[in-house]
Design a protein around this nucleic acid. Structure first.
Length: 430
DNA sequence: ATCACGGTTTGCA
DNA sequence: CTAACGTGCAAACCGTGAT
């Protein structure tokens, strides 16, 4: 007997202006004032308070470009404090976990919850309960969007944020289809999850300006012109689940670590120090997911934003004969690659490493046991390094080649304290 | 024609 | 110091050479 699939209720919970809100929890003087949080190296705006958004500062705006405006309006600019944000994120996520056993942590400030099993309740009330509890227990404001697919819940969340009528919780599933389509007809097609700055103009050129336009478009035809992703988006707008909740994040297939320098560097040694540091971080991530890497990539480049400076960008990928998780091996290969692509007399602005051809530790067990004893010892050494750095703070133990002076270290002019993860910094009065 | 490949582009938070 | 523009992923896409 055919049983029609029940309508799902999927919620997307998102912290408002996450980084700014975290800073405000620990410094209430920031409340009501225009505040931005800057990216690494104090480069771009990555989080903006509503006051700053109202002044026209865009997401990703370079700090030096709106510095004057900032001075004029008293915008407070803070360096990003990822240790603090990660800790606050963990608190929010574990509270949300109490509202459904089916949770996907989508990003540092966003979580999907499958509420299909709770449909006997008033889900708007349920969402308000989440909001109040998170506000009370963490001090962070969130909005809740509910729809029958992940794509719709994202849009509902957008409406919860932008339209005061919803009072921060918007459930598409309780609206009549006429009301819903009326609302979707007012939303720009670019608001859809998966439709960004490239796809939106292409859709608009076809006369598809609103979410409703795309919802009514032919998935088959648009698949020809765009991709299978576009087809899934259209079906999801019509309530057919094409993108399932991913409760256990799959292992990474590639692991990257890269950073822009505080000041440009030209000498090989500085680049080598930074590559060593980045590889140490990448290898830690690799071991955390219990994997081995079969390929190492190193890339370096000068600044693309200085037309007067000679530009140089290059990368090299080195396949490994045997997959490994040993920092020392990975660093040696990375430095070998760096030597091949390094050219003197350029002002390098950024370097990075990438691990790929990643396989689970299990699948290389046979190699592990068949190879020499030293392989096992190296694993023990890496485990010991990770454990000490976890207990004593990162960088307690590191390879000497990471360097100690680090002239290239990134700029963080105005970082707040690690209130939640360091007793020392909690006590400092600023 | 079709495939595997590697590098590039796109999108997202 | 007096210029200054993030990071980390996945997947689609695309050109290329091999078959």
């Amino acid at each position: 007997m055919f049983v029609p699939p029940a309508t799902r209720s999927i919620a997307l919970i998102d912290v408002n202006n996450f980084y700014v809100s975290c800073e405000r929890v620990f410094n209430p003087k920031l409340v009501g004032k225009p505040v931005v949080v800057l990216s690494n190296n104090d480069g771009c705006a990555v989080a903006r308070s509503n006051e700053v958004k109202a002044l026209g500062v865009g997401m990703g705006a370079p700090w030096f470009k709106f510095k004057d405006l900032a001075k004029q309006h008293g915008i407070i600019a803070l360096s990003s404090n990822y240790a603090l944000y990660a800790d606050m994120s963990n608190r929010v996520m574990s509270i949300l976990r109490q509202y459904s056993p089916d949770q996907e942590i989508y990003s540092i400030d966003e979580s999907f919850l499958d509420l299909t099993g709770f449909q006997s309740r008033d889900l708007i009330q349920y969402g308000q309960h989440m909001r109040q509890r998170i506000l009370k227990w963490t001090g962070l404001p969130v909005c809740v969007g509910i729809g029958s697919t992940k794509t719709l819940s994202k849009l509902a969340n957008h409406c919860a944020k932008k339209r005061p009528v919803f009072n921060s919780v918007c459930n598409f599933n309780t609206m009549s289809s006429d009301d819903l389509d009326g609302l979707l007809g007012q939303l720009d097609v670019g608001e859809i999850w998966g439709v960004g700055r490239k796809l939106a103009p292409r859709l608009q050129a076809l006369g598809l300006n609103t979410v409703l336009n795309l919802k009514r478009a032919s998935p088959e035809r648009l698949r020809q012109q765009f991709s299978v992703v576009m087809e899934k988006t259209i079906r999801e707008l019509n309530g057919t689940v094409c993108i399932e909740l991913e409760e256990v994040p799959p292992d990474k297939q590639q692991i990257m670590s890269s950073r822009s320098f505080g000041q440009s560097v030209s000498d090989y040694n500085s680049l080598a120090e930074s590559v060593t540091l980045y590889m140490s971080r990448a290898a830690e991530k690799l071991r955390k997911q219990e994997s081995f890497s079969g390929s190492v990539n190193v890339h370096i480049r000068t600044s693309p934003f200085k037309p007067d400076d000679p530009f140089y960008s290059n990368s090299l990928t080195v396949p490994l004969p045997t997959p490994t998780d040993d920092t020392r091996t990975l660093v040696n290969v990375a430095l070998w690659a760096l030597k091949r692509i390094y050219k003197p007399n350029f002002n390098y602005a950024k370097a990075g490493v990438m691990l790929s051809e990643i396989v689970s530790a299990e699948s290389v067990q046979t190699d592990l046991f068949s190879s020499s004893q030293s392989t096992l010892n190296s694993s023990d050494l890496m485990a010991a390094m990770d454990s000490i750095n976890r207990k004593m703070g990162k960088d307690s133990i590191k390879l000497a080649s990471e360097g100690f002076k680090r002239p290239w270290k990134m700029k963080q002019g105005n970082k707040s304290n690690a209130f939640t993860s360091s007793w020392d910094e909690l006590m400092v009065v600023r």
